[in-house]
Design a binder for these strands. Structure first.
Lengths: 229, 229
DNA sequence: AAAAACAAAACTGTCGACAATCCCACTTGA
DNA sequence: TCAAGTGGGATTGTCGACAGTTTTGTTTTT
C-alpha cells in the first residue's frame, strides 16, 4: 500500500526522504526505533534502492545513525545532544545576525518590523498562545538567517540542522517559554540590526538562543523523555 | 579493473565514498567535472548501487551537486563560497576555542604547548617550510575542536566541513601564508585557553581564521582558478 | 547554411533477486 | 540451572537488468 501522498518530487528517493524526515520529526516513527528496510519499502510502495538512498541522506542530516550490516536507528533525543546542538546554533545564528546587521537594507528592516508587529497582534488576540511559525516565511529566525546572505550558512542552518532542532522543539512541550519575552528579544535583535550594530546583534541573538536552550533543558528534565532500558 | 586499494571498510559504499572524497579533494577528479556512474562503477569494480549511495553521501558533504535525471557534478571552487565557508568556520571554531578555554585540563594544555614547540622546532630546522599537518593529531585546529567537548560541533567541523576546507587549501598554493605568523597566533590562542579566558580565546581564533581567509582570498584572486566558460 | 525535427545511444532512476551477515530461539553439555 | 554452541529465519549489502529521461548525432526543412 502506497503512502506516497501529495509531495510529488522529481525522484522517488527525494519523496521518501521528505516523508521520512517528516515522520521522524513529528514522532510518527518513534525515536530510538529501528528502521526496517523491507517494512518501510512495503509501506511506501517502493523498492529498497531509493529507500536506502533516502536513509543515507537522513544519516547526513543526523536524524538516524547507521551501523554496517545492522541497519539504521532513529536518534534518541537527550539533553546533552540538545545542548550541543543549540550551542552550535548560538555560534551560527549569532554570526547570521551579525552579517544581517551589516548588509540589511531598510526595506527588509521595515518588513521585519511589520512581521514582529503581526506576531504582537497575534499574541494580543489569542491570549499569549504560541504563534505557529512552522519554518515558513513568518519565522523570525529563518528571516535573519536568510538575510545573512551567506549561502553556506543558510544551507547548513535551514536544510541540515533545522530538522533536528524542530524535533527537539516538538518532543518537549516547553510551556515554560514565554512568547512575549521571546518577542521582546526579537525586537531588541532587530533594533540592533536596524542600527547596523553587528556586535550587539550577535550578542543579543546568542543570549536569546542560550535562554531558549536553558528553558528547553528545564522542560526536558521534567519530561520523561524515554523509558530507561 | 578494481581501484579499491588499502582502505578496507565494512561496506563497499563506505570504501567508495572515502575513495571519492580523497580523489576530489586531491583534484584527481577535477572540479566541475561530471560524475559518470557507469564509468566510475567500472573503474572501481563495483555495481552502481553502492556507488550511488556514496554519491548521495558526497552531496551531503557538499562536494558534489546533484540534479534529477542529469547526474552529479563536482563543485567548482570560487572565492565567494570559500569566504562563506570560512565565515562559518570563524563562528564555529571561535565557539570551539571558547569551550576549550572553559573546560581544558592542565595536562592537555601542556600537551598542546609541546605540540607548538614541535612546530617551532620544525620551522627552525626546515627554513620556514610549512609543517604538513594533514588532518592528523598534529593539527592544532583539530586539537582545539576536539577539546571543545561538543560532539555535534566536532562532527560538523571534522567530518562534514573539513573535506571542502582541505579542498580549498590544496587547490591554491597560498605561499602568502607566513607559518611563523600562524604559529604566533596559535600560541596566543593557547595562552588565552590556558588562562581560561573564553572571550579572548574566541576573539583570537576568529581573527586567526579571518586572517587566513583573507590571505587565501588574495591567493585565489591571483591563481587562475578555472578557465571561463 | 542554419535551424528545427527526429532517431538512436547513453545515462539516471528503479526494481527484483542473490549473497553475506546478523539475530533469535533452541539444543546440548557441564 | 546456566553457559556455550548451533541452526533457521530475517535483514542488510550487492548485483544485473529494465524503464524513462536526457543527450547526441543525423536528417530534414526552410
Amino acid at each position: 500500500m502506497s503512502n506516497l501522498i501529495s509531495i510529488k518530487s522529481a525522484t522517488l528517493s527525494e519523496d521518501i526522504a521528505q516523508q521520512l524526515i517528516s515522520a521522524i520529526v513529528q514522532g510518527h516513527i518513534p525515536q530510538g526505533s529501528k528502521i526496517s528496510e523491507p517494512e518501510l519499502a512495503k509501506q511506501y510502495g517502493v523498492s529498497r534502492g531509493p529507500l536506502r538512498e533516502a536513509i543515507v541522506k537522513l544519516e547526513g542530516l543526523g536524524l538516524v545513525t547507521r551501523t554496517a550490516n545492522i541497519g539504521a536507528r532513529v536518534i534518541k533525543l537527550n539533553i546533552q545532544d540538545m545542548l550541543d546542538t543549540f550551542t552550535m546554533r548560538e555560534a551560527l545564528e549569532g554570526m547570521a545576525a551579525r552579517l544581517a546587521a551589516i548588509t540589511m537594507q531598510t526595506e527588509e528592516v521595515r518588513s521585519l518590523y511589520a512581521l514582529l508587529d503581526k506576531h504582537q497582534a497575534y499574541l494580543d488576540d489569542n491570549q499569549d498562545e504560541h504563534y505557529v511559525q512552522q519554518g515558513g516565511n513568518d519565522d523570525f529566525h529563518l528571516r535573519i538567517i536568510h538575510a545573512s546572505g551567506n549561502a553556506k550558512l543558510i544551507r547548513l542552518l535551514t536544510e541540515e540542522l533545522y530538522a533536528v532542532i524542530r524535533m527537539y522543539r516538538r518532543h518537549t512541550a516547553d510551556q515554560r517559554n514565554d512568547p512575549r519575552q521571546a518577542l521582546r528579544e526579537h525586537r531588541a535583535i532587530l533594533d540592533a540590526i536596524a542600527n547596523h550594530e553587528g556586535d550587539l546583534a550577535e550578542l543579543l541573538m546568542r543570549r536569546h538562543i542560550s535562554r531558549a536552550s536553558q528553558l528547553l533543558k528545564q522542560a526536558m528534565e521534567q519530561t520523561v523523555l524515554a523509558s530507561p532500558p
